[in-house]
Simulated scan of single mutants.
Amino acid sequence: METGPAPEEGAAPDGPVIQTSAALVGDGADIAQGRHLAAAFLTRVQAEHGLAVSQRAMDLTQLVVSELVTNARKYAPGPVLLNLRILGDLVEIVVWDCDPVLPMARAADAGRVGQHGLEIVMAVAQGFEARREPVGKRITARLALADEPGGAVAGHRPP
Score class of each variant (00 low, 15 high):
residue 144 A to S: 12
residue 40 A to W: 05
residue 114 G to H: 03
residue 96 W to R: 12
residue 147 D to F: 03
residue 125 A to V: 12
residue 3 T to V: 08
residue 119 E to Y: 01
residue 51 L to I: 05
residue 93 I to A: 08
residue 138 R to P: 12
residue 25 V to Y: 11
residue 21 S to I: 06
residue 66 S to F: 08
residue 24 L to M: 06
residue 29 A to W: 03
residue 35 R to P: 04
residue 11 A to F: 08
residue 143 L to R: 02
residue 135 V to T: 03
residue 132 R to Q: 15
residue 74 K to W: 00
residue 68 L to P: 00
residue 9 E to I: 13
residue 23 A to Q: 11
residue 86 I to C: 09
residue 95 V to A: 07
residue 154 A to L: 10
residue 87 L to W: 09
residue 56 R to S: 03
residue 15 G to Y: 09
residue 125 A to D: 03
residue 31 I to Y: 06
residue 44 R to E: 04
residue 79 P to S: 08
residue 70 T to D: 02
residue 103 P to T: 12
residue 123 A to W: 08
residue 66 S to V: 07
residue 63 L to W: 00
residue 80 V to R: 12
residue 147 D to E: 04
residue 34 G to M: 09
residue 79 P to R: 06
residue 89 D to M: 00
residue 103 P to G: 11
residue 153 V to Q: 15
residue 82 L to Y: 07
residue 114 G to N: 03
residue 158 P to I: 04
residue 140 T to H: 07
residue 126 Q to L: 15
residue 107 A to M: 06
residue 21 S to E: 15
residue 152 A to I: 08
residue 130 A to C: 06
residue 37 L to W: 05
residue 123 A to K: 15
residue 91 V to D: 00
residue 96 W to E: 14
residue 123 A to Q: 15
residue 159 P to K: 01
residue 91 V to M: 01
residue 23 A to F: 11
residue 86 I to H: 08
residue 63 L to M: 05
residue 48 E to L: 10
residue 84 L to P: 04
residue 150 G to K: 03
residue 136 G to Y: 04
residue 71 N to V: 03
residue 98 C to W: 14
residue 78 G to I: 01
residue 37 L to P: 09
residue 1 M to I: 14
residue 104 M to Y: 05
residue 41 F to D: 01
residue 147 D to I: 04
residue 137 K to T: 14
residue 29 A to G: 11
residue 102 L to T: 04
residue 80 V to T: 15
residue 5 P to F: 00
residue 32 A to R: 14
residue 89 D to Y: 02
residue 113 V to E: 12
residue 149 P to E: 00
